[in-house]
Amino acid sequence: MDLNLLEPFRHPIFAKHQLEVDILRLDRIDPMISGNKWFKLQHLLHRPSKRARILSFGGAYSNHLHALARFGQQNGIPTIGVVRGELRSTPTLEDCQKWGMQLYPLGREQYRDIRADDETSLGGDLRRELRARFGDFYLLPEGGATREAISGCGAIWGYVPEDYRPSRVLVSVGTGATLTGLIAKAPPGTQVDGVAAIGDAAYLVQVVSTLLYGRELEEGVRWSLNSALPLRFAKLNGELAALWYRAEEVGVELDPVYTLRMLHYLLRNILSGNYRKGERILLIHTGGLQGLRGQRENLSRLASAHCGPMPL
């Protein structure tokens, strides 16, 4: 695929601190199978029974379910979405149904108990109920986080020009699969920093460490995983909302759940003097812009009430 996805992110704050910042626009690969989701799902075409139906999990605004439904429609693969909580009319789920995904609501408490890394992790009663309703299916973990998906995310480096080598890469983190893939295939001497979409990244550090176990990294590759803010998943505050509008004003549209926190983390570290002068920093835009349809009103309300200083 011949795409130039690398673009400069120019702003006086970067020039002031003598930093070169660029964005890899993975959101432009496919308008619906957006960003890192495109890399996570490609392996599904190489299953022994590649047309067998796929069942996966997500919320009412899930980027993963949205991408999976479109992927299934494009490739003639039936899809099933187990949705956290009651079924609501959201633009995301409406798209999923339009593309042929069958939806199945699951209570929040029962949903929290799911460890969807293999079929046996589903409770016996739930597994029987799902099979009775849908027949046989291939179980895809929430977020599409499989070892094959990690290898797929390593292919993101193929969209970075050969003559461009960042000293530092920043990427937002949900399950850890994209971060792991980037670390595993990073060029020598690269620092890869993950920014968690949740307030406490401690358990994700263990997840990524486990996924990397036994993998031989290139010389000098280092990584970290931190939280941008002590906020629960998908929660916003006035500072983040105002930052989203400031980024849009300078031509960068971000999703408020993942990539917005990555930008916030970058700016806080710049203002804290944590980066060396002359560093070349690459931001990975992992897509997810479809979720904006459910967030614009909230972003506007929070941003209008924000009175503090803005780093951008």
Score class of each variant (00 low, 15 high):
residue 192 V to A: 09
residue 261 R to I: 06
residue 278 G to M: 11
residue 51 R to V: 00
residue 226 N to A: 13
residue 282 L to H: 06
residue 233 F to T: 05
residue 150 I to Y: 00
residue 142 E to T: 03
residue 261 R to S: 03
residue 164 Y to D: 08
residue 140 L to Q: 01
residue 16 K to C: 00
residue 142 E to F: 04
residue 112 R to E: 11
residue 76 G to D: 09
residue 149 A to L: 05
residue 233 F to N: 02
residue 30 D to F: 04
residue 284 I to V: 15
residue 101 M to W: 08
residue 254 L to E: 03
residue 186 A to H: 09
residue 197 A to W: 02
residue 266 L to I: 11
residue 67 A to Y: 01
residue 191 Q to I: 02
residue 295 Q to N: 14
residue 237 N to V: 12
residue 210 T to H: 13
residue 296 R to Q: 12
residue 195 V to H: 00
residue 30 D to P: 03
residue 236 L to M: 08
residue 84 R to G: 03
residue 200 D to Q: 12
residue 187 P to S: 11
residue 57 F to D: 09
residue 12 P to S: 06
residue 6 L to P: 02
residue 198 I to A: 12
residue 49 S to I: 00
residue 247 A to N: 13
residue 92 T to M: 06
residue 258 Y to A: 08
residue 156 I to M: 10
residue 38 W to Y: 12
residue 201 A to P: 13
residue 102 Q to S: 15
residue 290 Q to V: 05
residue 64 H to P: 11
residue 295 Q to H: 14
residue 65 L to R: 03
residue 211 L to E: 12
residue 164 Y to F: 15
residue 139 L to V: 04
residue 59 G to P: 06
residue 267 L to K: 06
residue 72 G to K: 08
residue 202 A to K: 14
residue 175 T to H: 09
residue 66 H to V: 05
residue 9 F to H: 05
residue 22 D to Q: 13
residue 148 E to K: 10
residue 8 P to V: 05
residue 63 N to F: 08
residue 227 S to R: 08
residue 296 R to K: 12
residue 198 I to R: 13
residue 44 L to E: 01
residue 287 G to F: 07
residue 271 L to K: 11
residue 280 R to D: 10
residue 209 S to G: 13
residue 56 S to H: 09
residue 178 T to C: 05
residue 214 G to R: 09
residue 209 S to C: 04
residue 24 L to C: 08
residue 247 A to D: 07
residue 219 E to D: 13
residue 299 L to M: 04
residue 218 E to S: 15
residue 288 G to P: 10
residue 31 P to Q: 12
residue 25 R to I: 07
residue 37 K to Q: 09
residue 216 E to V: 14
residue 162 E to V: 02
residue 178 T to K: 02
residue 227 S to F: 05
residue 206 Q to F: 00
residue 170 L to D: 01
residue 100 G to P: 10
residue 127 R to T: 01
residue 293 R to P: 00
residue 203 Y to V: 13
residue 190 T to M: 15
residue 58 G to Y: 05
residue 149 A to C: 06
residue 304 S to P: 00
residue 115 R to N: 13
residue 266 L to N: 08
residue 261 R to C: 10
residue 27 D to G: 01
residue 242 A to D: 06
residue 177 A to W: 02
residue 211 L to Y: 09
residue 79 T to G: 03
residue 157 W to Y: 10
residue 17 H to P: 01
residue 6 L to R: 01
residue 280 R to K: 15
residue 21 V to N: 04
residue 288 G to K: 01
residue 230 P to Y: 11
residue 282 L to A: 08
residue 80 I to E: 07
residue 146 T to E: 06
residue 204 L to C: 07
residue 47 R to H: 11
residue 21 V to L: 12
residue 92 T to H: 05
residue 161 P to W: 12
